[in-house]
Design a protein around this nucleic acid. Structure first.
Lengths: 190, 190
DNA sequence: CAGATGACCAAATTGTCCATATGGTCAATT
DNA sequence: AATTGACCATATGGACAATTTGGTCATCTG
């Protein structure tokens, strides 16, 4: 069946990308892993790049579902946004494929990989933005430019989780939640 | 005179680093530009790396002075921190040398250049941290972990000025000040 | 003789082939 | 009609030569 073969190919490619990275994975390798001829891959995907793109698109859906699951509509907005962000970045760090791609983009600057990760970032910002808009609608928070807010929230989280560790002891999940609320949602001024 | 020669060398090196980058600048080039023998450079600096380090150290002093100048003790903390941060990043972007080094670290990953830019970052965070501590001392803002706060402030600024432009129209100075106050100092919750 | 210098060296970088590997195509096959 | 692997132009990587470069030091000079 056609869709079955397509799935096989996607799974083989995802597996290989995660294990060896995008560049180090050859189309022949994928074909062998998927038990299809190399040409077959090109009946489903225009190029290697498109194959990666489709896989990451699936990943985005997965991440959104994870984040959605982590949230709890009975909790206040601030708690939910923290949970969602934390889950998103945890996923991004833990997931073999994203971890490998993140590493690859640091070492080599493959254009395709860079583009696809940028797309992932945009999707995550968009996800948060929708949550913000919903919270504004419900009157949980005051109106604001939700795109910039979502963008800053993600950046702040990445700074706290990824960048801070470069020069300091890692912060715990609780510390991050506290800091995020303190600096971002509550503010310093008085 | 000895210190005169040293200054000549530093200026020649700074000029060449800014024009061609660290890697592309050779010691012979610097010597020629400074009108000294190549060996002379090594009577003042242990290595090319140390030469860069000394130049950047001078730059840090310059940046601090710039930031200090931009501040006004009669204004509230939030306004001053904004002015200082904006001036720091404006300087960093405009200054030929830092711009070139920033570009170089993106393209190649020269260890020396990376280290020296990290040092620059640390110095800027430390500068902000001292301003925060002073503001806490004066009771202008409530007590907080000044190191993390300074770190987050710089990251937030870089995100707004540098990262935001990658996908969107640049924000004006006023917009950035407003956003910074809104999200960072005032908070969203109510 | 103290400080400056440039010839000199080992190590790193760059340039040049060439053999191999790879993404993508397509005529043959099932 | 769908699948395939031989095939092709191009990209990549390894080996080796040539060049460059950071750093040293014996020599020079004022």
């Amino acid at each position: 069946m056609a869709s079955d073969r397509k799935r096989q190919i996607i799974e083989a490619a995802a597996q290989s990308f995660a294990a060896f990275g995008y560049k180090a994975t050859t189309m022949e390798q994928i074909a062998k892993l998927a038990n299809v001829g190399k040409g077959t891959i090109y009946t489903f995907f225009k190029s290697k790049e498109e194959l990666l793109d489709e896989i990451v698109s699936g990943l985005i859906v997965e991440i959104k579902a994870e984040a959605e699951l982590a949230m709890d509509s009975s909790l206040p907005f601030s708690e939910n946004v923290h949970r969602a962000l934390y889950r998103i970045l945890e996923f991004r760090q833990r997931h073999q494929l994203t971890a490998k791609l993140l590493q690859e983009v640091r070492n080599i600057g493959t254009a395709a990989v860079q583009e696809v990760l940028a797309k992932l970032d945009r999707a995550m910002v968009e996800f948060i933005r929708q949550k913000i808009d919903a919270a504004v609608e419900k009157g949980e928070i005051r109106p604001c430019n939700s795109e910039i807010t979502a963008f800053l929230m993600l950046k702040t989280y990445i700074a706290l989780i990824v960048d801070w560790e470069k020069d300091h002891e890692p912060l715990t999940k609780e510390q991050i939640a506290e800091l995020f609320t303190l600096y971002f949602l509550q503010g310093l001024s008085r």
